[in-house]
């Protein structure tokens, strides 16, 4: 009680200083801790966007479960997509610790006030896209998530650790699909090249705008919500992908790619940001479809949720009557 009274008399500025000290000392912030409102809002935005991306991300791959070209691939793809539902769920529950309900988050998604990764606005047209998505899209996501295992908010960091552990198979199964295709018949190899060409650049854009353009970057770094900048993570991904493309024997989609001796990194061609923003702003092939799909599943399921609630009420009532 006395402590509470002392705390309550602390000024907002003092509280924020203590908060920043914790962060600087690499201590995790936990749900009941004092935190600046902007930190909370920033996390809600980023974590719910991350959760929505997992959930919307089920659709482009779900699109191929019924067409997978072998029973083994069918099982692998299904379990991967199912994992994504699980990851969405881990992230929703971690975000709920910040005082927002899943229902509110879903509503924000469905009304367009919350975003999901724009990569899922691209259509999946061939089986090769299952390879490219697992390898490149999950690969880019993992780069980001590995870094987020050290994020300052405890529940977020813990769900990232769990997700990274499970996702390591996602990228590998994707790359394995690419290996089979690239080393298969000429038609399969062409399929692999086509998928690589379509998904390479959008994958790079998953890291977000350049640091100089990123609205949330600086403060997120100070609060250690983000641990590495967009450009650093993107560079890491570009560098590690080069030898993977070479091994496949496919052509690299970036014609301007050259090794920079001095930086010991690759210099790469400029990304087409106009296209990126165009897709984000509604001109992707699947923007409307993804949200409509989500809304329809939600509405189709309304009677199920109502029925379970009604059933439970009846059961509880019966228990009270029996007890009386």
């Amino acid at each position: 009680m006395v402590n509470n009274m002392i705390k309550n008399t602390l000024s907002e500025i003092e509280l924020e200083r203590l908060f920043q000290e914790k962060i600087d000392a690499e201590q995790k912030i936990e749900p009941k801790d004092w935190m600046p409102d902007a930190y909370r809002q920033n996390l809600i935005r980023q974590m719910s966007q991350h959760a929505h991306s997992e959930v919307i991300g089920m659709q482009p791959e779900g699109n191929w479960i019924t067409r997978a070209p072998s029973l083994r691939r069918k099982a692998v793809l299904l379990s991967k997509v199912q994992d994504e539902a699980g990851h969405g769920l881990y992230l929703y529950s971690a975000t709920e610790t910040l005082g927002i309900s899943r229902a509110q988050m879903i509503e924000a998604l469905q009304t367009g006030t919350a975003k999901y990764a724009s990569i899922f606005n691209y259509p999946t047209q061939t089986w090769g896209d299952m390879g490219a998505i697992g390898w490149l899209v999950d690969g880019a996501a993992i780069c980001n998530q590995v870094s987020l295992q050290r994020t300052s908010y405890g529940p977020y960091a813990r769900s990232m650790i769990r997700i990274c552990k499970e996702e390591s198979f996602h990228q590998r199964q994707g790359y394995q699909i690419m290996i089979e295709l690239a080393h298969g018949t000429p038609a399969q190899k062409a399929m692999a090249q086509d998928s690589l060409n379509r998904f390479y650049w959008p994958s790079l854009m998953m890291f977000g705008p350049h640091d100089s353009e990123s609205a949330h970057s600086a403060r997120s770094m100070k609060w250690k919500i983000k641990r590495e900048t967009n450009d650093d993570l993107r560079q890491k991904f570009i560098d590690q992908t080069v030898s993977q493309i070479t091994f496949l024997g496919l052509e690299h989609p970036d014609k301007d790619l050259v090794w920079n001796e001095k930086r010991e990194q690759y210099d790469s061609g400029e990304l087409d940001w106009d296209e990126f923003y165009s897709v984000i702003n509604g001109n992707g092939h699947c923007n409307r479809q993804r949200i409509q799909h989500h809304v329809k599943a939600h509405e189709d399921g309304a009677w199920v949720r109502e029925a379970t609630a009604a059933y439970n009420r009846k059961k509880e009532l019966k228990q009270t009557v029996d007890a009386a």
Binding site: I65, K74, L78, Q82, A85, L89, H294, D300
Partner: peptide
């Protein structure tokens, strides 16, 4: 497996996936 991403809520989506698997 056709229920993937079509379930009445996320938990049930995952459960149906397990049955399909």
């Amino acid at each position: 497996s056709e229920w993937v991403s079509e379930g009445p809520f996320l938990e049930e989506d995952i459960a149906l996936g397990n049955v399909a698997l």
